[in-house]
Amino acid sequence: MRLSWRKPAPLNWSAAREAQYTTAAPLLGGASITLLGIVITDRDKFRWPGPTLLALALTALFMVVAMVLGILSRQYLYSRSDVEAWWGPLSEMSDDQHEELIQDQRMHYSRYVRLERKADFCYLSGILCLAAGSSLTLAPPAHAAAPAWRWFAAGTTATLIVVLPLARTMPYIRNVMRNLQADHHDST
């Protein structure tokens, strides 16, 4: 089987992920550290300062790990034109060398996808912890005069904790259903 260069699907998927790890993750991690500082200095103004601090500290940790993994993964993503830029025109290469470069790129692309999966897991976990942390921060303190709006705000933020994992798992549930249908077709 003659195989070709690997590519992301959609093609600009990697550019979108790059923005996630170089822009969004540092900003969200930084915001959680700022919030962490506020909760530490004004503990008595929050209903549950301990769990809030834990959620925010985990957010910062997950975002930093997502950033590191995302940046590590990037070194393994390159295209055919990158190979040509470093090695010279592919048309002037021997078939063996051409084949070896394709094999390398395929192996590196697989490594890139594995690291991206881990980075994405950390980023999603960071978002969930940030939602939990924000929700805990918004919960009104015990002595608050009119806490209804604070509870509403806390609840709204907390819905992310349910919605986000559901939105992320739906494509996989659909994929499992498709595979089951195809297996059924296969066996009949």
């Binding site: 690997r6 590519k7 992301p8 699907a9 959609p10 991206e116 994405d120 494509p171 994929n175 498709r178």
Partner: peptide, 16 residues
């Protein structure tokens, strides 16, 4: 999460 792709042609069921 990276889309699941065909290991030979890189088509993704989420796209086509």
């Amino acid at each position: 999460m990276p889309p699941r792709q065909c290991p030979a042609c890189d088509a993704a069921p989420s796209e086509r």
